[in-house]
Design a protein around this nucleic acid. Structure first.
Lengths: 301, 301
DNA sequence: CATAACGTATGAATAATATTCATCAATTTG
DNA sequence: CAAATTGATGAATATTATTCATACGTTATG
């Protein structure tokens, strides 16, 4: 069977000019090369070299094999180099899953410096999962999960990476705009605009209105943050978003944040990975980058 | 070292779904595959499969290796197939050298049916040789030589493939046009047009004029047969060409052949090969094709 | 829920293969 | 022409691959 060693020998013999010289370079004896190639020639049924006195000249088969060697061997050495990079965690693909809209905003800020620091790592972002984010993590659909709902299970590791306050966003001249904070009842006559997800994943429902037995007058799902705030700014309803996100949009739209309840709704985003991946350099680096940003945030607060 | 067998195993395991099934297909034991791959994993420093219960899942490294396998293995099997074809003489490159202009005309007629019969054989035609045609044959510059001057030496094999008469070509109203044959002296006042080669390779000199101590009034070298005959037809000189070649041009130009000397100049073209190549199918086929045409020609005559 | 069936891992034994050593023949070099 | 160099080759040896026997864990089944 035509094997890597044969291609290597042919290439080296051509480079060195003789079996003996090639044998030295390859740390083998001349005899070994001679035996190897003779066997190959017998198996292929064609000579690779014409033996002329004590020198070798490639036959047509030999020339062809040399071309194959020059083409194939680099592919194998590249593969080995790549695998070394994989094993050192220098290269890979980081598939990040996300389960919430604020997560996405946060991610954008982290990925950019990460990509710069790890040029050989590809980052894929996925948003839909058949069995939920945790399932996707366990099922190797993704390698990392950004979520507000950690699930501390064996085999997984979660850590908080971002703290924020969920606030109500109102437009100009809204009657609640200057309230220090609001009570659930004050939303009963409002149109509530949210991302199009199940109600039990909306904190303003689960943590604010549902405990008080209140529903908004109307509920309107909107895909994008921009459109959502545009509608809020034009007085078509109110929304619930992270305070920091609202702050970023106040120059663009005339909207204002209002605290939900006396103490506000405190939220956290978590980063989850499989514990078995914790040693991989480029995974570790991502977690550490997130950690560092989190520490910075706490220091400011 | 990443070797062909490893790529084969990875590919087959993926195809069959398990080590055990792949082992059967590859005519090895499950144990052999397990040992092989474990060793590779240790050398590469990275796992290829994640062992989950009794099934295997490719890691990133493994997926990458599978891609490499799918890309590289076909190249190796193709190479083996090509080498088999080389060994069977079904495929190759036939480098044909030529030393005379009539040779080229003859070759064109033979190559065309040959290429049709041997679609996997490339034919290269070369016309310039550092050490002459024979030298090129010995030096493996070419595999076949078409020449009027065979040299029967050990290691080479020549055989005649074309007989023809070298004749003088004259234009319309030429004073020699209707002579049955001419003597050397009758060329003393003519302009002789020939291909641009050394005089001692021109038969009309070596076999006709030089023995009689005669030179033409002028000697004009012309590259192509067409231009040459055009000049002859316009009365600008006379030329020496094979009779059959002149016949082919009589419809195109108003030229006529005249015998050189009472018995004419008889010429032969020979086909030479290295004896060591005589067994190669596509070489043998070419020689036989030439032989067949020669026999046909003799039969007609 | 026990148990059969199946898949992988592993150490030791064995078989197969590659490599070396010693030597020859042929060719080139000085 | 002697010395040096190169490739080929058979036998001895070392290395490597493969098998065998078996263990361990998972999955399927009645």
């Amino acid at each position: 069977m035509l094997d890597r060693i044969h291609l290597t020998i042919i290439q080296e013999v051509e480079k060195q000019g003789s079996l003996t010289a090639a044998a030295n370079v390859l740390c083998l004896t001349q005899s070994a090369l001679s035996h190897s190639m003779k066997k190959l020639e017998q198996q292929l049924g064609t000579d690779i070299w014409l033996r002329e006195g004590r020198s070798l000249r490639l036959t047509q088969s030999g020339q062809y094999l040399l071309e194959v060697a020059n083409r194939v061997l680099p592919q194998l050495t590249l593969a080995e180099e790549r695998l070394r990079q994989f094993s050192q965690g220098e290269r890979g693909t980081l598939r990040i899953g996300m389960e919430c809209h604020p997560c996405y905003q946060w991610l954008l800020k982290v990925v950019s410096p990460y990509l710069a620091a790890w040029p050989d790592v590809d980052v894929d972002v996925k948003q839909k999962f058949q069995f939920g984010g945790i399932g996707a993590l366990f099922g190797y659909e993704i390698d990392m999960l950004v979520t507000p709902d950690p699930l501390y299970k064996t085999g997984l590791h979660f850590q908080p990476v971002f703290d924020y306050e969920q606030v109500l966003v109102v437009g100009p001249q809204h009657r609640l705009r200057n309230a220090g904070f609001i009570q659930p009842e004050q939303l009963a006559e409002e149109t509530l605009i949210t991302y199009p997800v199940e109600i039990d994943r909306l904190d303003i429902y689960t943590q604010f209105m549902m405990p008080a037995g209140i529903s908004p007058k109307r509920h309107k799902p909107i895909e994008t943050t921009d459109i959502m705030l545009q509608m809020v700014a034009s007085g078509r309803g109110v929304a619930a978003l992270p305070r920091w996100l609202v702050s970023e949009y106040t120059t663009k739209f005339d909207v204002a944040p209002v605290r939900l309840g006396k103490h506000g709704i405190a939220k956290q985003i978590f980063l989850g990975i499989r514990e078995s991946d914790a040693h991989i350099d480029y995974v570790k680096a991502f977690v550490e980058l997130a950690q560092a940003r989190h520490d910075m945030q706490e220091h400011k607060a």
